[in-house]
């Protein structure tokens, strides 16, 4: 079945009436057919999902982000970047086809009784602002596709191996992706692969590991001010990271006076 998107004016109408519909965002079933213009507020597209968009619901602290990033990216792998930034697509999926997932992962109830906060939360998680790249990693579903897209590596035995690294350190890697430098394929793949290579020292619980990753990200940003990292290969990016990593580790091992 071909993918459906909301019509542009219907997305605008929905976005403009979030406050009026706050109660509906707590509903168990999709409700957009019930609002004016909803029944005819969609279009068929020429894109058909390759696989069923059957998302896993979070269980306790296990948010299932990696599993779902793989499901969304695999199902919609044929989307072009222009299509995958279309606000009509993600608004439709967030409100209809993937409603159960959105309710479980991005429940509006987490904002308590603060209506302003709830409205902002819905606008950022259930919609995509037209001209903000950051919005793509905020929407509950678009983020899954874009994480998959930016970290997918067809040359690896497990093409989503780097997606796993990305999602295991989301607060740090999101900072990189939200910055322009993280959009350079060699830089973001090189960075993620480097983390994987030094898994024991960089990935997992512990403030010292987080601090090291932050220092590496900072270093990359620093040399990016002078060096055009876009022209380096993945191995060259990893070589740069290795130099900084060795320095950080030597510093930490040095006896303090």
């Amino acid at each position: 079945m071909s993918l459906r998107v909301f019509k542009e004016n219907f997305v605008e109408r929905l976005r403009g009436t979030v406050r009026d519909n706050l109660r509906r965002y707590k509903a168990q079933k999709p409700w957009t057919d019930e609002v004016p213009g909803g029944k005819s507020g969609w279009l068929s597209t020429e894109v058909s999902p390759q696989e069923k968009l059957d998302l896993r619901l979070p269980v306790g602290k296990d948010l299932k982000d990696l599993e779902n990033a793989i499901i969304v990216h695999r199902a919609l792998q044929q989307l072009t970047p222009v299509q995958a930034r279309d606000p009509r697509l993600w608004a439709r999926l967030s409100h209809v086809e993937c409603w159960d997932y959105m309710r479980a992962r991005w429940a509006v109830e987490r904002n308590g009784s603060d209506q302003d906060k709830a409205e902002k939360f819905i606008v950022s998680r259930y919609f995509v602002a037209n001209n903000e790249s950051r919005a793509l990693v905020r929407n509950g579903l678009a983020r899954l596709w874009w994480y998959g897209y930016l970290s997918h590596d067809a040359n690896r035995k497990n093409p989503y191996e780097l997606t796993g690294v990305l999602l295991s350190l989301l607060d740090i890697t999101q900072t990189i992706l939200e910055r322009s430098l993280g959009r350079v394929p060699a830089v973001n793949h090189g960075f993620l692969e480097f983390l994987l290579l030094h898994k024991a020292d960089l990935i997992g619980p512990g403030d010292d590991k987080r601090l090291r990753v932050r220092q590496l990200a900072k270093y990359l940003n620093l040399i990016g001010g002078v060096t055009l990292l876009d022209c380096l290969t993945k191995s060259e990016v990893m070589f740069q990271l290795q130099k900084e990593f060795d320095r950080i580790m030597a510093e930490q091992k040095a006896p303090t006076t």
Partner: peptide
């Protein structure tokens, strides 16, 4: 920025 495209 809109499509996260960056190439040299």
């Amino acid at each position: 920025g809109n499509t996260m495209y960056r190439r040299a």
